[in-house]
Write a protein that binds this DNA or RNA. Structure first.
Length: 562
DNA sequence: ACGCTCGCATCAGGTGGGAAACGG
DNA sequence: CCGTTTCCCACCTGATGCGAGCGT
């Protein structure tokens, strides 16, 4: 049932970090250490470098341990199901889902209680395929930057995109199994928050009776493990709203309450080849929580530090950069994420205050957000803590470690590298209703895929194609498959995988975040002639969508086959 | 003539700021 | 009255369409 997986540094991270196009000569770690490309601003972006390889070398093991902050999300003390009636997203609400979610996640939490209790160890495996998924948060350094100041997300009536937006790389999925991938945004604590005196302070109880959609199904769901793993899974189109009555674009909107703290969670649910969920859904569902993605929903920014970070990093807010010219005319190599203290605005806008780590009331929340047991005592930690959070700028010199932990029967250990941001989080079983998946139909992808060689799990060709989902926000997959699915692999960005969607995590942070458009342009060009030869633009994530030339595919193939 | 690439123009939509409106 | 929300603005990105230029 459970396949034992063990990933070593030599066999996983470094192997994974071989660049398909660069011949695999540069590893993320090496890049970070050498400062080549990924050491900009002291940290690098998440790189997805392929599937982990099995290894029994526990002493050198690094990365890919998963740990379970089970029950980490605040549940309304009322005892009501955490998932309201509008839980559904495009498909009929499922009592099964709610009934499962509730007991699983309704773990009442008293104030001050650790939001993320020590993980319990093993999580469920997708036993159908024997696969235990690993998920890596892309752009984690950027998330951490925001998290240091307590991330705020604007919510508007018409919906506002998140920034940073959620984006993940996945590994460990069965190549041929089909999965639904969706994000849920749940209340993170029982408090109502207010920004007072430059700090976020609690202010009464949260309104836990919030209604409205809390789930956002990735538009490419359902899809095969191969599909999810071969590229970055971005939720850039996800919108946050405070308009409970909004029925417009409900599938794109998550309804939140202002001045409440939320924690996004990623759910991966295995569905059958026919798109129907297995009876044993518990074992087929995995949930991942990244504490650094926690945020407070606001209708207007409260903390000017957050505002400045948004302006500095969000390309759509370029117009608000008053030092744009000086910041962005430098060459790529010279362009750094605007250093808070270096930025002229740092002094112009919030003199003496900007980018200083602020004491956050409720620090205990943040501190406790991260299970102490997940951290080494030696000053190297897996995740930062709120105050005195490690400076993102120090990332190059920092390595992230997580205490080796037995994870079920697997001997996973994680020794993440901050630079590479390969920080997987834990999963917890939950259920998605069969009703929700009853109409799911999968794609059978690439039975002769080059991935097959190096993937840990079975790669049995599946030929059946199924009708598209009536509820799916995604265009009919059948059509997509019959007409375009194959080209999809070769040269076509996926439906929702627009260039904007796939801002390559392979780029240095400032390219992938602040300068996404530049890369986007590059990627756009690449569709016309694979001009994206910048090594920094090479990763499974970005490459896959550009992988439309035989040359590129050959490179990719050689990457995985060694 | 045809197909392809490239550059430019256009337009939809995303962004934070700030003023006005709202509500307790 | 004060905190919060809404609306509009200017600026920007990114997708798309069109035509010119070029090669076959």
């Amino acid at each position: 049932m459970l396949k034992t997986e063990s990933f070593s540094s030599k066999g996983s991270v470094e192997e994974r970090c071989k660049s398909p196009l660069s011949g695999g000569k540069e590893t993320a770690a090496a890049a970070a250490a050498s400062g080549s490309g990924y050491a900009e601003a002291g940290f690098g972006p998440q790189r997805y470098c392929g599937p982990p390889k099995a290894s029994t070398d526990s002493t050198t093991t690094r990365s890919f341990i998963t740990y379970s902050p089970g029950g980490s999300i605040y549940a309304a003390p009322s005892g009501t199901a955490r998932y309201p009636t509008s839980l559904h997203l495009g498909y009929p609400p499922s009592a099964a889902l709610r009934s499962h979610f509730s007991p699983t996640y309704q773990m009442g939490q008293s104030p001050g209680q650790s939001l993320y209790p020590p993980y319990s160890g093993s999580g469920p495996a997708l036993d159908g395929a024997g696969a235990r998924a690993h998920v890596y948060l892309c752009k984690q350094p950027l998330w951490l930057k925001f998290h240091r100041h307590q991330t705020e997300m604007i919510i508007t009536k018409q919906g506002r995109r998140m920034f940073p937006f959620l984006s993940f790389n996945m590994a460990g999925l069965s190549l041929t199994a089909h999965y639904n991938v969706f994000v849920e945004v749940a209340l993170a604590d029982p408090n109502h928050w207010r920004f007072q005196g430059g700090k976020w302070v609690t202010c009464g109880k949260a309104d836990s009776s919030s209604q409205g959609n809390k789930l956002y199904m990735h538009p490419e769901s359902p899809n095969t493990g191969a599909h999810w793993m071969r590229q970055e899974t971005s939720f850039s189109k996800l919108k946050l709203t405070n308009n409970k009555g909004s029925t417009q674009s409900i599938s794109q909107m998550i309804v939140l309450l202002s001045l409440h703290k939320y924690q996004p969670r990623l759910h991966i649910v295995e569905v059958t080849e026919n798109g129907v969920e297995d009876i044993d859904v518990d074992a087929k569902t995995q949930t991942f929580v990244f504490p650094e993605t926690q945020f407070i929903a606001v209708t207007a920014y409260q903390n000017t530090d957050i505002t400045q970070l948004k302006i500095d990093h969000n390309p759509f807010a370029k117009g608000f950069r008053d030092n744009y010219d000086s910041m962005y005319t430098a060459s790529d190599n010279e362009r750094l994420t605007p250093s808070p203290t270096d930025s002229p605005r740092a002094h112009q806008i919030v003199p003496g205050a900007r980018y200083n780590v602020q004491p956050l009331l409720g620090d205990h929340h943040f501190v406790n957000n991260f299970p102490p047991s997940r951290l080494y005592d030696g000053g190297e930690r897996a995740v930062p803590q709120s105050n005195g959070l490690l400076s993102a700028e120090d990332g190059a010199s920092q390595r992230w470690f997580v205490t080796p932990v037995q994870h079920g029967t697997s001997g996973h250990k994680y020794e993440g590298d901050y630079s590479s941001s390969l920080l997987p989080y834990a999963m917890k079983s939950l259920t998605v209703p069969p009703a929700a998946a009853s109409h799911h139909h999968g794609l059978s992808y690439f039975p002769d895929s080059p991935f097959s060689h190096d993937m840990p799990n079975a790669w049995a060709p599946r030929g059946a194609m199924t009708p598209s989902l009536p509820w799916s926000p995604r265009p009919g997959l059948t059509d997509a498959h019959s007409e375009k699915a194959k080209p999809h692999l070769e040269n076509e960005p996926t439906g929702a995988g627009s260039w904007a969607d796939t801002q390559p995590s392979c780029l240095p942070l400032d390219k992938s975040d602040s300068y996404a458009p530049a890369c986007s342009k590059q990627r756009h060009l690449s569709t016309k002639g694979m001009k994206c030869d910048d090594a920094a633009c090479v990763s499974a994530g970005s490459f896959s969508k550009d992988a439309h030339s035989s040359k590129a595919m050959a490179a990719y193939y050689s990457f995985y086959t060694g």
